[in-house]
Design a protein around this nucleic acid. Structure first.
Length: 797
DNA sequence: CTATGTAAACAAC
DNA sequence: GTTGTTTACATAG
């Protein structure tokens, strides 16, 4: 292994232990070697900034609201809200309260309506509230319009671009109100706006200013932006001092490394263009333009890293122009969440603060999760917030937010449970692992085929295919075996591998993905069954995926003229993740159970959910699996057929799926525990939404749910229905309603079920959940054997 | 262990 | 020299 013939042993890098000692906290890493170059960037201690607690205390809650501590969940309160109450204001008040208390006090609130179903206002109001939180986030929107178009152009090429940029900076504040409309108005609320990107360095402002207002910074930025890039450079530097207030900020921003991973930045760049493709140079340029750090501070090697990332991650697909002379980098449609910088950018000055909070909070989570995944959990949280965390943190990834409903989407959750269920054999730890795995896309290659690809996403074998492929010829076969041995959960993991397959070597195929699959499948299938057993999960996936792929892929975004270059030869690379199938399909897995809890901490769930959710943007991470970054795209692409019926892709036809799903799941759910809380059957969120949410919304709270994707719905329904027993039928789009209002309890068919909202001030998220108020049995843990929510809370009855 | 970041060797152009 | 790919190692969590 390490012996690579080629590689020169370079050990320069050892950064030294020195640093360890002294180093510091932060991102020292940038200049590891201590190269001379180092710009001494100052790291500001942004972390410490005081966070405002101001607001907190005083909020008053409207009359009629009842707040009680959750019997078993720490820091969680149940808020019974009268039907006619103004949820918005309540949420705000609770948010303030939660923040005030921080990790030490109640920071999660389960909102339930004491009364009927009426849902008065609408989503609009609620949304606003939500948005309000994000204030700044919205600000960016204004810019976006301009942005979008411009984006595509290359900076270099078009001088104009600079101009455009200028535009980008919105006056900033705008806050909530009006401007946004443009973006949103277009329709999907969330999406539309989101797609466009860029607001340059906005995040910077935020970071530095933190509590203050980003305004100054932005303005400053604006100025800068207006001048042509090159000029800017100079001027900026010089001018820095000019605006006193901002100057420092500006410097900071420059010196600070953006909290995004290269992968995320590449996505931002590519997605900033209309065609969603960009040449390498343009990517460099975009990054430099939007993250001055790279222009002024970073070592030249950052470009190498960009290239490395492009090659490494399957989500990045290289296409050549018709003439073959130009190579464009694109994001695989199935993986592209269309993340853009502005989407990620959060304004509120409080990111940092939040961050801190999160950290504090984390311990708890860890406990719940059992520890292992703690890291991940953290990451997840971070992502959720989208905030740019400190550089190295998990947040690095593209921050993805999962709003509320996501749980539905998560595939992972299901899997997990299953794993648990069946695997009784598996040790807890193993289970955890599996969960982790979920997130990653399995990159593996063929070998695994034996395994079963089926498992597909969730369990996705996290590992890189590297093991597998590594040795080209001879080993290949053997390796798979190896994997199995090595990893306990293999089965779980395995499936992905198959999918992944990269054999791609064949250049012949234009479409990289498609081609690969077939072969793979063949291989895989056999094994599949066996695998399935091991991991119940698996079964579905394989086949389906492929199909999906084909379908999905087919609609390549218009690249018609360009040729996609086949993927890299795959094989071996350690990380490359191949697309596999996006798990998307599997929302199936999703499982409800995990459900609602996300906000709660579902102990077991958390890990999964979050991870999967997270997305990162990097999808890779999770979700979908293959790509780290946000993959889910698939869903979007899916034909939005009017028929709700499901999209083929999503549902796994496989007969088995259901079976496995249901059974295990059901159990699992019980295990999971959470209590009475269950995810809503109805998929209020469509996949898309989720996607959207994932990617974009800066505001966690945002509720607007767009159109529900049939797929998801269907799947989700299925899932739900199984375990929960609720009938899926209900779900259709109706679910969409965006309003945060508590849905009347009545919605669900099952009377004992009631929808509620979970406000997690730590994560700044608002999630819908289903509460089984009559529940007494399973959830005993929480309420106690005999208790039911209705008993506990008379109003519920 | 995973995800990321870095550095570098190489191969094609 | 640029672009792309891949390997190896470092590091934080």
């Amino acid at each position: 292994m390490r012996t690579s013939p080629r590689r020169p042993l370079i050990l320069k890098r050892r950064k030294l232990s020195l640093q360890d000692g002294s180093a510091s906290n932060s991102p020292a890493r940038d200049e590891p070697d201590g190269e001379s170059k180092g710009v001494p960037k100052q790291e500001h201690s942004r972390e410490d900034k005081p966070r405002d607690r101001v607001e907190c205390g005083a909020q008053k809650f409207p009359a009629g609201i009842k707040i009680i501590n959750h019997p078993t969940m720490p820091n969680t309160q149940v808020v019974i809200i009268p039907p006619d109450a103004d949820i918005q204001s309540i949420i705000e008040a609770l948010t303030a309260k939660g923040r005030e208390c921080g990790s030490n006090g109640p920071n999660k609130f389960i909102l339930i309506s004491s009364g009927g179903s009426s849902r008065p206002t609408g989503s609009a109001a609620t949304q606003q509230t939500l948005q309000s939180k994000d204030e700044t986030s919205t600000a960016t929107k204004g810019a976006r319009a301009a942005d979008c178009q411009g984006g595509e152009k290359n900076l270099k090429q078009n001088p104009n671009k600079t101009v455009e940029r200028a535009v980008l900076w919105p006056p900033h504040v705008n806050s909530i109100g009006g401007q946004e409309q443009e973006g949103n108005s277009s329709g999907d609320a969330t999406n539309s706006g989101l797609n466009n990107s860029l607001t340059n360095i906005q995040w910077l402002g935020k970071m530095s200013s933190d509590g203050l207002g980003p305004c100054t910074v932005k303005q400053e930025m604006e100025k800068e932006n207006q001048t042509p890039v090159q000029e800017r450079i100079k001027t900026e530097e010089d001018s820095i001092p000019a605006t006193a207030t901002s100057s420092s900020l500006w410097q900071d921003s420059i010196s600070e490394r953006p909290p995004y991973s290269y992968m995320a930045m590449i996505q931002f760049a590519i997605n900033s263009t209309e065609k969603k493709r960009m040449t390498l140079k343009d990517i460099y340029a975009w990054i430099e333009d939007h993250f001055p750090y790279f222009r002024y501070v970073a070592k030249p090697g950052w470009k190498n890293s960009i290239r490395h990332n492009l090659s490494l991650h399957d989500m990045f697909v290289r296409e050549t122009s018709a003439n073959g002379k130009i190579s464009f980098w694109t994001i695989h449609p199935d993986a592209n969440r269309y993340l853009t910088l502005d989407q990620v950018f959060k304004v509120s000055g409080s990111w940092e603060g939040k961050q801190v909070q999160q950290k504090r909070h984390i311990p708890e989570l860890q406990k719940n999760t059992g520890g292992n995944s703690s890291n991940k959990t953290e990451l997840q949280n971070a992502r959720r917030k989208m905030k740019p965390l400190l550089p190295r943190v998990s947040s690095y990834l593209v921050p993805i937010q999962f709003p509320v409903s996501q749980p539905l989407i998560l595939q992972s959750s299901l899997k997990v449970p299953q794993a648990m269920a069946q695997g009784a054999s598996l040790s807890g730890s193993e289970v955890i692992r599996s969960s982790k795995r979920v997130r990653i896309a399995p990159k593996v290659s063929v070998l695994p085929s034996t395994e079963e690809p089926s498992s597909f996403l969730p369990t996705g074998p996290v590992k890189e295919k590297s093991h597998c492929d590594e040795r080209p010829p001879p080993f290949a076969p053997s390796q798979p075996v190896k994997e199995n041995n090595s990893q306990p959960g293999e089965a779980l993991a395995s499936f992905p591998a198959a999918l992944c397959i990269k054999e791609e070597k064949e250049d012949s195929y234009p479409d990289k993905w498609l081609p690969s699959f077939p072969p793979v499948l063949s291989i895989k299938e056999e094994p599949v069954q066996s695998d399935e057993e091991t991991g119940l999960l698996l079964p579905v996936p394989c086949v389906k995926r492929e199909k999906h792929f084909t379908v999905l892929k087919s609609p390549p975004r218009g690249v018609s003229d360009t040729v996609i270059i086949k993927r890299r030869k795959m094989g071996r690379s350690r990380r490359k993740q191949h697309l596999v199938l996006p798990c998307s399909e599997e929302p199936v897995l999703v499982l409800p159970e995990s459900c609602g809890s996300d906000s709660f901490r579902l102990a077991s769930d958390l890990p999964f959910l979050q991870e999967s959710q997270s997305l990162e943007l990097s999808c890779s991470q999770e979700e979908g699996g293959p790509f780290k970054t946000p993959v889910k795209e698939m869903f979007c692409k899916l034909p939005v057929s009017s028929t709700p019926s499901k999209v083929p892709t999503a549902t796994p036809p496989m007969g088995s799926p259901d079976s496995w799903r249901l059974a295990p799941i059901a159990k699992e759910s019980s295990e999971l525990d959470f209590s009475p809380v269950r995810t809503p059957q109805v998929p209020f969120t469509s996949l898309q939404e989720n996607l959207d949410l994932l990617g974009f919304n800066s505001t966690p709270l945002k509720n607007s749910f767009d159109s529900p994707r049939q797929l998801l719905q269907t799947e989700s329904n299925d899932m739900v229905s199984g375990p929960l027993t609720s009938s899926p039928a209900s779900n259709p789009e109706s679910t969409k309603q965006s309003s945060p209002k508590l849905p009347a309890s009545g919605q669900t068919e099952n009377q004992s079920l009631m929808e509620g909202l979970v406000l997690d001030t730590m994560n700044n998220s608002l999630s819908k959940i289903l509460l089984d108020i009559s529940f007494s049995g399973l959830e005993d843990d929480i309420l106690g054997p005999e208790m039911s929510w209705s008993q506990f809370i008379p109003e519920l009855r």
